[in-house]
Amino acid sequence: MSAYWKANQRRLAPWLFLAPGMLMFAVYVIIPIFQSMWISFYDWDGLGEATWIGTANYVEMTTDPNMRKSFVNNIIWLVLYLLAVPAGLFIAIFLNQTVGGIRLYKSLFFFPFVISQVVVGLIFSWFYAPGFGLFYKVIEYFNGTGIAILADPDLVTYGIIAAGLWPQIAYVMILYLTGLNNVAPDQVEAARLDGAKGWKMLYYVILPQLRPATFIAVVVTVIGALRSFDLVSIMTSGGPFGSSRVLSYYMYETALSEYGYRMGYGAAIAVVLFAIMMVFISGFIWKMWRDETER
């Protein structure tokens, strides 16, 4: 035994180190993904007998108006959330100076990312509150009548996205601040001697060097947009009339809320969301794979 161990230690050691982490990850993450796919072919209330219904859940989805609304909202989220990338870059450039107290300024600008989305949601609900909310008052001042954003089916999604952008911009900002810190000073000086400045400098000299930061910023922003659940749940619970639903929230609603324990249909929605996200995840993994194997 001990001779065997001595001879094969190097071959066996990685598996022993991996075992506990892999086991946990398999049980709670990898296997449930396949279980969800399986459940999506059933009609199941979570308690009683599950009935195999083939692709009926997926067929139902194609004509489900709530599904359509959630999907459209997800696209709006995705597109508008990406505004966090230029906005974060803009703030990072604004803050990338060395004046007194700038470190504290940077930390305070980063603040919204540290606090829970539940708290962000409550803060913005207060900000939008009809009658006395600050945002409402400002609109009332300019427009004559205020707008109750969270009660307006056409505007509600934009109101929630604005709340989501607040911490997301802070996150992107910190990525770019770190990136700017590592921009090669000699290249900037050389470009300056050649007369580059302002936008040209940013576009031709700085942005190419910020590419790793931009890549990560886009990845976390896309994932964040598709994962949006907390804000929708806290600010509107999907309302009014389901107009602020997104796939992640609609899935939760069908599977677990008072609207009925339809685990099968919920799982099918989750599979669709998973498929959408897999497109982005695969792209990310593909790039990482290339970087790893090139080395």
């Binding site: 969800s36 992640s248 677990l256 982005f280 995840i281």
Partner: peptide, 17 residues
């Protein structure tokens, strides 16, 4: 990459199981 990819999946696909 399995660990990395797993980290990005939507929570909803894990929820029911």
């Amino acid at each position: 990459f399995m660990f990395v990819a797993g980290n990005f999946v939507p929570f909803q696909i894990l929820m029911v199981p």
